[in-house]
Design a protein around this nucleic acid. Structure first.
Length: 421
RNA sequence: GCGAAUGUAGCUCAGUGGUUAGAGUACCAGAUUGUGGAUCUGGGCGUCGCGGGUUCAAAUCCCGUCAUUCGCCCCA
């Protein structure tokens, strides 16, 4: 029989790596608890229209990367390529912004889907942790959101990270800047790569982000958006920087940073790692003050980011920042023959009742082989039950780390194991 | 969507036209009949990714295909 394999670009996550994932997720949840954000869980499939309107029909995501299909009712649905659009849909649908909270704060962790060519750190099903904050344009909120991303990555042991910060203006000042950028790039178009030539009219801001060396060089004299912000945006940006400084979050201003999704306004940021390959962004986000209203809700300022979990995993591994995880099994119960297995099973039950992670040997082999198994499981103790133990009414408990052995009565067993290191 | 590399034992890989395809490691058994990190001995390794072609002969050469990887693009 031919083996059935996973769909291209989709991965299984299992032991031992899944422990690292659990560690990351629990750290995220505890951090979000500290910042008083609530989780939101939205469906993985949404109406296609949500992403076309929310993410923007000019983006690559919508143009060529979505998993879109018709369901049995001939409705066009799409597996979510990102999280923000769904959250905005949910808060509009359930009027969550009317809950009375001064600022509505959410986070999510879950799989996203984009039909792309897979490579390291880029899969077709990938996991994102995202933060969404609605109802305030305070620069302190911008700083708070960036701080969350920075804190989590730092606490995960990622030291070589870089926070890049920019402001891309608002509907007042960006079109003006866009015009002057367009004008400038038109003037030097023969020096730009083919793609950038197409971008001149379609999306001139992306030219700043082009990685072609010649484009980087030749656009050095291009107008800088930070110098063309309107007074409101400029003041806002200054306050964001000051707020970050005040809590000691390091960042660099990168005036070339442009985000790929259409909905961003003002603050844009990205965190990169030196420990990744070409896909070096661990997370990125920004402000989207017009998205809620564009999706039919009340005019509501908002900001958020998304972090790619597999990239975080890769970075942690490459940086050898993996914490030591305790073994999954604390006690291994070994009945030395079939005669003791029934008793051992009951003893196993008692250990588990006492919340001691434990397993028992279920195959018949020599005692030596059982101890090997115990070692492989990473168990701290072996509980041996043989003829002698039954006869004496006491169990033999061996500390597998220091190889010492002790006779312990059944009633003392759980306390003995709990009381040991 | 474009370019390139790789695909052989569970894992890491060697083998580039010639018997029955190898090593390390891991695994299993024994030396050790109730005691695990060492050592020794023995054991099974496989649709050589898949399909086709060239050849007396293909893991090896050619074509196709699938998968992975690295870039481009894009992004998390």
């Amino acid at each position: 029989m031919e083996k059935i394999t996973a769909v291209k670009g989709m991965q299984d996550i299992y032991q031992p790596e899944v422990r690292l994932w659990q560690h990351i997720e629990s750290l995220i949840r505890s951090e979000m608890n500290t910042f008083a954000y609530g989780e939101i869980r939205t469906p993985i499939i949404e109406k296609t229209e949500l992403f076309v309107r929310g993410v923007g029909d000019g983006t690559d995501i919508v143009k060529k990367e979505m998993y879109t299909f018709n369901d049995k009712g001939e409705r066009s649905v799409t597996m979510r390529p990102e999280g923000t659009a769904s959250v905005v849909r949910a808060i509009n649908e359930h009027n969550l912004l009317n809950s009375g909270e001064p600022v509505s704060k959410f986070y999510y962790i879950g799989p996203m889907f984009r039909y792309e060519r897979p490579q390291k750190g880029r899969l077709r099903q990938f996991y994102q942790f995202g933060v969404e904050c609605y109802g305030s344009e305070s620069p302190f909120i911008d700083a708070e959101v960036i701080q969350i991303l920075y804190n989590i990555l730092s606490k995960l042991g990622l030291s070589d990270i870089c926070v890049k910060l920019n402001s891309i203006g608002c509907p007042e000042c960006r079109p003006v800047f866009r015009q002057s950028a367009e004008k400038y790039f038109s003037g030097i178009k023969e020096k730009l790569c083919g793609e950038c030539n197409e971008r001149i009219s379609s999306n001139p801001l992306r030219i700043y982000d082009c990685k072609t060396p010649s484009c980087k060089e030749n656009t050095e004299g291009a107008p800088v958006i930070l110098q063309h912000l309107c007074p409101d945006c400029s003041g806002h940006f200054e306050k964001v920087k000051a707020a970050l400084d005040s809590i000691g979050i390091p960042f660099v201003v990168d005036s070339r940073l442009v985000r790929g999704l259409d909905y961003y306004t003002r603050t844009a940021f990205e965190v990169t790692s030196k420990h990744l390959g070409a896909q070096d962004a661990l997370g990125g986000g920004g402000r989207y003050d017009n998205l809620v209203s564009e999706l039919g809700g009340p005019k509501t300022p908002a900001i958020g980011f998304a972090m790619g979990l597999e990239r975080v995993v890769i970075a942690i591994k490459n940086q050898k920042a993996e914490p030591d995880f305790a073994g999954g099994c604390r006690a291994y119960v070994i009945p030395l023959s079939r005669n003791e297995s029934g008793y051992a099973f009951k003893l196993l039950n008692a250990l588990r009742k006492a919340n001691i992670p434990s397993q028992m040997a279920v195959s018949e082999k020599k005692a030596g082989a059982h101890f090997k198994d115990a070692e492989k499981l990473g168990a701290d103790f072996a509980v041996i039950i043989g003829e002698d133990e039954i006869k004496n009414g006491a169990l033999t408990v061996k500390d597998l780390k220091n190889r010492s052995q002790k006779s312990v009565s059944e009633s003392e067993l759980t306390e003995y194991i709990k009381g040991s290191n």
